[in-house]
Amino acid sequence: MTWLALVVLALVLLWPAPLLLARARWPHREPRAALVLWQAFGLAGGLALVGAALAIALAPLREGLFGGLHTVLTRGMAGLSWAHAGLLAVALGLGAWLTGVLAHRFVRTVLTQRRHRELLDLVAEPWPVKDGGPGSGTREGFGGDPAHGRVLSHPQAVAYCVPGADPRVVLSSGALDLLDEAELFAVVAHERAHLAERHDLVVLAFTAWTAALPGLPGARKARSAVTTLIEMLADDRACMVCDRAALATALARVGSAGAPAGALAAGGGATVARVHRLLEPPAPSPLIRLAAYSGAALLLAVPTLALLLT
């Protein structure tokens, strides 16, 4: 009956659980714990889905998961009916599909980043360094590594980073004109937090998950929630070195600048939520944190143990 538990777990993690977590209010109080829980949802969901199919397919052999797989590998599928053999193929195919899409997305993302970075290095100017004059110290590199800083000469205010082994932090000249020194420092602190914690890899996993299981509302909700959570994590980390209000005003200014309506305003809601969160920080909750981490550990342990012990 292990397979039944795995099927139920997979269905819960693919459908209602992500919708509930996406609607919950507490993740904005404990973004790191919520992010871990989202990752546990994805990992445990995938494990349970593939594991359930494997367990059902190999059940006639009565040798458990690994024993069954070993038997199939060494002695072929003699002990399996056509239906079970078909399900085994589906399970293995699904596992290969999930890992394959992840690998494909990873390579594609790395190539996109490299191309963007190369072009950036050709057309962008290095970090402006203001030397001499009192009070110029903070502007020098805006607190970041000047070797990674680039300025794109464009009137629209934009700030972003290109993650990777050789990262870049990019500001447009429009952003330099729009923001004061404390705000620029806050923006760079935020981008450096992304780079330091490699948030791009977390988002990549969820982007791949969404691409691998298209049409699944849970995966889309997860990606959108995770994208917002890593922004809040970067905000929190930035606030350890920069002024909280400066980060909030920088966000509001850059978010409202230009504001071409339509498709580009897609993530605007998250920006608004972040500004309010910075202006009135919600109280962290150790209890919620503990519950989220325990839940994540349990979610990962159940399918793993179920698969190992059957």
Binding site: V162, V203, A252, V254, G255, P260, L264, G267, T271
Partner: peptide
């Protein structure tokens, strides 16, 4: 978010007005 991480998403005009007062 995977390839590039943008600091702020563009907000629509209504939200921009709300942000202006918060600002």
């Amino acid at each position: 978010g995977a390839a590039l991480a943008r600091f702020a998403d563009q907000v629509d005009p209504d939200d921009a007005a709300a942000l202006a007062s918060a600002l």
